[in-house]
Computed example of a mutant assay.
Amino acid sequence: MISQEQFEKEIEIIITNALREDIGDGDHSSLACIPISALGKAKLLVKDNGIIAGVEFAKHVFAKVDESLKVETLVEDGTPVKRGDIVFYVEGSSQSILKAERLVLNAMQRMSAIATKTNEFVKKLEGTKTKILDTRKTTPGIRALEKWAVKIGGGENHRFGLFDMIMLKDNHIDFAGGIDNAISKTKQYLKDKELDLKIIVEARNLDEIKQILACGGIYRILIDNFNFEDTVKAVNLIGDKCLTESSGGITLESVRKYAQCGVDYVSSGALTHSIYNLDLSLKAVD
């Protein structure tokens, strides 16, 4: 995964770009009717049930818009919330609060939905050794936010992008001329470039797992679209030679059964691409 410094840079880029996109040459609605000296206070109101996420991100946004804005946090990231709860108060320039409002809401609603969905998977896995992973099936431009939300919900992050881990999937293998070629070329590439990256290889059947194991030096085998019976066989075949990961259409209803097959990880794109925003609003306080 990326370093904390890289992650913070990603968050800064997201905030800068989002504010540029939304504010443009000025928030003319506020400028037209609210004095620049006006002070106000607003509350982040929960209108749904779930896991709250994005509180720390909201603080970054408010500070970017106006360092003088003060935030009083009542509920921390990762906390279960219900309709009617107040997450925080923000106080200061009315114009500044309104500039930050939409970005804060858009981000927190999506992040909270992802954290909520992730937490549902985490609960299904309780009592097993299996951990839930996200994927690269994220919204372009805000991957850092969505992966942050997965962590808040109790899940773990897969690689951040194409650059921080090697993952040889079916197309890589086919284009490279087979598993042996794909893995041997990858190992040579890493040696030539002096890169220290972990290698994950996708397997489509038990025979491919045998081929991957014969090559050695693999961090994790992705057991893709296997049924339960074959997943058990794959796990037994792999043993402690490397880590295991199940993926491919795994749902809340089936995730525990895959975990009971003995895999170390289950990855699901549904954590980030199949969610509905948690309903939140920022309301002025008299």
Rank of each mutant, 00 (worst) to 15 (best):
G40F: 05
G269M: 03
R102F: 11
I2A: 03
K59I: 14
T116Q: 04
A182K: 00
A32I: 02
I14H: 01
G155T: 07
G154A: 07
G216C: 05
K185N: 14
R83D: 15
L44P: 03
N236W: 05
T73E: 13
G84W: 08
M1D: 12
G24C: 00
N49T: 15
S94P: 11
D134F: 04
S94N: 13
F57W: 05
R256Q: 11
E194I: 07
E8Y: 06
G249Q: 09
I2D: 03
T130I: 00
R83C: 13
E156V: 14
L278E: 06
L168W: 00
M165R: 07
V90H: 01
S281M: 09
K47V: 10
V61C: 04
F228D: 05
R136K: 14
N171L: 13
C261E: 01
H60E: 15
E91T: 12
S29G: 11
S30F: 04
I199C: 08
G262W: 01
G161K: 08
V90R: 05
I223G: 00
D66W: 06
L282A: 02
K41W: 04
E253L: 12
G141H: 11
Q109P: 00
E67D: 15
K47I: 10
K131T: 01
K59W: 05
S3G: 13
G177M: 12
L133I: 09
I23M: 06
V235M: 04
S254F: 02
D48G: 04
V201Y: 01
L105W: 01
K64E: 12
N17D: 15
G249H: 02
K193V: 12
I34A: 00
V122I: 11
G84S: 09
A58S: 15
T116G: 02
L278Q: 12
T186W: 10
E101R: 12
D286V: 12
Q109W: 03
S254Q: 08
L222F: 07
L168Y: 02
K210W: 08
I166S: 03
L162T: 13
L45M: 13
L195R: 14
N106I: 10
E126K: 10
R143V: 07
L195Q: 13
N17F: 08
K169I: 09
D279G: 08
A234L: 09
D180A: 13
I223W: 03
T135W: 06
H172R: 09
K210Q: 12
G177P: 07
S68W: 10
L168T: 07
L197Y: 09
C261P: 00
G161Y: 08
K129G: 15
G78L: 00
S94Q: 15
M1K: 14
L162F: 07
A284N: 12
T231H: 00
L213S: 02
I218A: 01
K82S: 11
K210N: 10
L213F: 06
L133T: 07
A182Y: 00
